[in-house]
Amino acid sequence: MTHPDPMTEPEADPSVGRGAPPRPQSLMLSFFGIHVLGTGTALPSASVIDAFARVGVGEDAVRSTLTRMVGRGLLERHRRGRRMYFSLTARAAEVLADGEERIQRTGAVNRAWDGTWTLVGFSLPESWRSERHDLRSRLVWAGFGPLQSGLWVAPGRVDVAPIAAELGLGDRIRAFHGEAAAPTEAGPLLRTAFDIDAIAEGYRIFLARWGDGPVPAEARDDLGRQLLLHTDWLDLVRRDPYLPAEHLPGEWPAARAEALFRELAARFAPGASRIAEEILDRWEPAGERTD
């Protein structure tokens, strides 16, 4: 599996997933992931505006987010008569499919770690700030944390070749698989490379936001609740490097949070599907595109 651009740039926005309202682009990615991914269809801006009104996002914010995402190569724009439709690009579909894989099949708790680590070393010139940022963002997405200057680590076997190839940094990156040797121990290594307390706090905030009591007030119906729930959860999953359970603190909150997510996702899905059928004007573009 490749590890494409996470697009939400977790390094650049640490507040996401810690109680801050989701950004419009995060909501948009979740929305297209739920309702467009795998269908080959496009949606008109009017349908998107209608859906986002159900989570308190106004028309101007929706239109500017759609335009920005077209500019970033995440959405394609199609004209059909007087209406403008939007579909996922191949790049965005790849990222969303990876997120769906994490949500549906990987799970939030790693109970099958075999003791193997992946190490990545790199050295980039100081002037390569953009390349360094892109590399770090992709390493975070792939589950790596910084161990020391120029050396990153992830539990398990991670295929680093697609990252290096995508960024054109194959001659600047060195990758290794292996096991830790004394005096290095897994627990302290994890705490050095990853902010375990912050990861746990993200899950606790999710539990507080979606647990006992009313769902977030900005969600007006099941479509809105589904959108906010999936956005919150995917932001958490994207920031969780899937650390081995045996080396995490007791009462690790990820399992409880995942159970709550799945319960609520199943509860909201039927109503959200009915509303989506009513308001989403789907269309299958035949290659038309308006740049």
Score class of each variant (00 low, 15 high):
Arg267Cys: 02
Ile163Gln: 10
Gly107Arg: 09
Gly168Val: 14
Thr67Pro: 01
Ala269Thr: 02
Ala259Leu: 07
Ile275Tyr: 03
Trp117Gly: 05
Leu75Met: 05
Gly33Trp: 10
Ala51His: 03
Ser137Gln: 15
Leu147Gly: 02
Arg129Ile: 00
Pro270Glu: 08
Arg282Trp: 07
Pro214Asp: 05
Asp60Lys: 09
Ala286Gln: 11
Glu288Thr: 11
Val55Arg: 02
Trp283Leu: 15
Asp221Val: 00
Ile199Lys: 08
Asp5Lys: 02
Pro10Met: 14
Asp134Met: 05
Gly40Asn: 09
Pro183Cys: 08
Thr184His: 13
Phe268Thr: 04
Glu166Phe: 12
Ala193Asn: 08
Val16His: 04
Leu66Tyr: 04
Val16Ile: 03
Ser45Gly: 11
Ala198Arg: 15
Pro253Lys: 08
Val62Ile: 00
Pro249Ile: 07
Gly150Asn: 13
Arg77Ala: 08
Ala265Trp: 03
Val95Phe: 12
Gln104Thr: 12
Trp141Asp: 01
Ala12Glu: 13
Ser123Tyr: 02
Glu263Gln: 15
His3Lys: 10
Leu37Asn: 08
Gly81Asn: 03
Thr106Ser: 05
Leu228Ser: 04
Trp128Lys: 15
Glu218Pro: 04
Thr41Leu: 04
Val57Asn: 02
Pro125Asn: 07
Gly211Lys: 09
Asp240Pro: 11
Gly150Ser: 12
Arg23Lys: 05
Ala61Val: 02
Leu96Asp: 04
Leu243Ala: 06
Arg262Lys: 10
Pro125Lys: 09
Leu228Cys: 01
Val62Gln: 01
Arg209Gly: 08
Tyr85Val: 12
Arg157His: 09
Ile205Met: 04
Ala257Thr: 11
Glu251Cys: 02
Leu96Ser: 06
Arg132Met: 14
Asp221His: 03
Trp233Val: 00
Pro22His: 06
Val153Asn: 04
Leu29Asp: 00
Ala20Val: 10
Thr192Cys: 06
Ile205Arg: 13
Pro125Glu: 06
Gly156Lys: 02
Ala245Ile: 03
Arg72Gly: 15
Val95Gln: 05
Arg138Ile: 10
Leu243Phe: 05
Val158Glu: 01
Leu119Ser: 07
Gly58Asn: 14
Ser26Phe: 05
Gln226Lys: 10
Leu37Arg: 13
Thr89Gln: 05
Pro183Ala: 08
Thr231Phe: 06
Thr2Asp: 13
Trp210Asp: 05
Ala46Arg: 10
Asp98Asn: 11
Val95Cys: 01
Leu228Thr: 05
Ser137Ile: 08
Ser137Ala: 14
Arg174Glu: 11
Trp117Met: 14
Gly121Ile: 00
Arg136Trp: 11
Glu100Tyr: 13
Gly17Trp: 09
Arg63Gln: 10
Asp232Glu: 11
Arg267Ser: 14
Arg18Gln: 15
Glu201Ile: 03
Ala142Phe: 12
Trp252Ala: 02
Trp210Gly: 03
Arg274His: 10
Glu277Ile: 00
Pro249Gln: 13
Gly38Ala: 08
Ala269Cys: 00
His247Met: 03
His133Phe: 14
Gly56His: 06
Val48Ala: 05
Gly187Pro: 01
Arg63Val: 07
Ala182Thr: 03
Gly224Tyr: 07
Tyr242Glu: 06
Ala208Tyr: 02
Ala272Arg: 00
His177Leu: 15
Leu243Cys: 07
Asp221Cys: 07
Ser87Phe: 05
His3Asp: 07
